[in-house]
Design a protein around this nucleic acid. Sequence first.
DNA 1: GTCTATAAACTGATAGAC
DNA 2: GTCTATCAGTTTATAGAC
Lengths: 218, 218
Amino acid sequence: MARPSFREQVLRAREDAILSSVNRLLAEKGFDAMTVDEVAADVGIAKASLYKHFASKEELAAAAMVQVLDRALALLAELEADSQASPLERLRAATRWTMQVQLAGEMPALPAQNSALRSALSAHRVYMERLVALSETLGSWIVAAQKAGQLDPGLPPEVILYTLFARACDPVLGLLKASGNHSDERIVEMLLSTCFDGLSGSRVPAPARSARGRAEPR
Amino acid sequence: MARPSFREQVLRAREDAILSSVNRLLAEKGFDAMTVDEVAADVGIAKASLYKHFASKEELAAAAMVQVLDRALALLAELEADSQASPLERLRAATRWTMQVQLAGEMPALPAQNSALRSALSAHRVYMERLVALSETLGSWIVAAQKAGQLDPGLPPEVILYTLFARACDPVLGLLKASGNHSDERIVEMLLSTCFDGLSGSRVPAPARSARGRAEPR
DNA sequence: GTCTATAAACTGATAGAC
DNA sequence: GTCTATCAGTTTATAGAC
């Protein structure tokens, strides 16, 4: 790219504005309920201008999701650079980040099984490439954490991976935020706890009150 | 109701058939993507006949969800009748049931935050009454399980309740089923484990391989 | 003959695409 | 701003059950 002309910079900036709006609307209402008119109104441009940037509603959503995946990949790179952190600490930090992004209203919902979006995304090269990169890094951390006994070695790694993806869009976050009874920080810490330690809670410290019959076997 | 005439029985049976179709379609595609024409075609009746039974698409969905809630309430009553079971065992059994229903493709997705369905449901007396009844029973089990040290007493009960509701619609179930690598039974048991014991796994039995630094504090 | 289901056409509104 | 498709909901005319 020889010269980043002024015009190109303007287009670039506008695209970023569009993607921010799309991500927020995608998080708020989901793909089906989000209308292109709404996006245009939110960005403050004409609907026709949107179609100068993106060929379809699906393209629009895919580009927005690629943006989020790129932010996630940048975070993973940061975490990987911290050689002090254990695999589990990295996974918890990554999960905490996704929850914070969701609370900020910037995490688009997982495309539902039969959404029109799903097939479009599977066919989207850039999106799939980012998704695979993300999965591979997370997958390596998961396997390492299992080897270190920090994650249940009885679970197939893909089950843990899918669960972490799902928790990034967990509706519980939104329900708790809507209830207004807890700070964002507390919500994140509680859900991190339920995710990694379960509803039963971590039993690590000591067999505190183990008088009664213990939990059934897994 | 003096006599359950033949005609009434037919209508009743047809309503059941309709609700079954709606629940399946609701689980498959969600409320927005489901069309009334589709429902009529699936049941094998005319669209006009549908509107003889239900005044609107929202009414249709609400009735279907009430049916599911009633099935759930019946299960809770059964579990409550078993005086042997601990609160935790009851909660696990109830959660297992919801996962099985979801795997069977009969669990409608949680209405999204901004769905047109959400406000309709909040205004639906019967639906709300069932939902409250369900929440109260589950809530009492949750509090009892916390008192018995079977569930993390540091979590507000509503956090646990919301989490159990969310797990009934957990997209991880569908992802794992689609991957085809595990039997339905195994999927349910794994997700029950991640729900109650967390991704780290139950640490109850013994401090097996605790050589390395232990999990960070909650 | 009366009641009911059905198919099919139609309306109005909305949304994607250009 | 226009075009077209889709969908919720209604209406009408026809056919069949009792």
